[in-house]
């Protein structure tokens, strides 16, 4: 049984200051890295002789408009079927420079997941063979999952959090 501690220590040894913000919410190892290291790290975990984190479960994006310099986050979930071990890797990006290398060379299934993330958040995956919208129509000129596009009329008063003591 692989422990979070083991994998975290190994990654710190290999990547040093490029891995940070270790957490384990609900026992799932969560860490952050830089965009330069993310694809090598996925490759390293995949090729690792004992970890064998070979399966990329999911890629998705999150928008944090209130954290300057780290407005966007790309979240990778990977899974080792040998050890039943999951890891979550985050890469924070600044809104001014939304570029991150594509993970397709390591995991072919990243293709559509990256297209989906691009479609909804506008994050550009460098080196992606066909980075076009996937679920929304192609002539859309905005990325709808960003927080600046509210779902409802902003002037609506009946759902103001203050009324409910929040």
């Amino acid at each position: 049984m692989l422990t979070n501690q083991e994998v975290a220590e190994d990654l710190v040894k290999k990547y040093g200051a490029d891995v940070f913000d270790f957490e384990d919410p609900f026992d799932l190892l969560t860490l952050s890295t830089t965009r330069e290291q993310i694809v090598p790290m996925l490759g390293y975990l995949k090729a690792h002789a004992s970890f064998q984190i070979t399966f990329l479960t999911d890629i998705t994006g999150v928008h944090y408009p209130d954290s300057p310099g780290q407005e966007f986050c790309v979240v990778y979930h990977a899974h080792s079927w040998v050890h039943n071990f999951r890891v979550r890797i985050k890469v924070f990006l600044a809104e001014a420079d939304l570029h991150i290398p594509t993970a397709i060379p390591v995991h072919a299934c990243a293709n559509w997941m990256e297209r989906e993330t691009f479609d909804f958040f506008g994050i550009i995956f460098d080196g992606h063979p066909k980075l076009i919208r996937i679920l929304n129509m192609e002539d859309m000129d905005y990325h709808p999952m960003r927080k600046q596009y509210p779902l409802e009329d902003g002037t609506r008063q009946d759902k103001v959090d203050a009324l409910f003591g929040r």
């Binding site: 999911d58 999150v62 928008h63 299934c109 959090d161 409910f164």
Partner: peptide, 18 residues
């Protein structure tokens, strides 16, 4: 908050249909 900040569904057929 009263709603999720972010909710993502990992839909199996979306991923393998590629």
């Amino acid at each position: 908050g009263r709603a999720p900040y972010r909710l993502h569904f990992r839909r199996p057929s979306f991923i393998y249909y590629q």
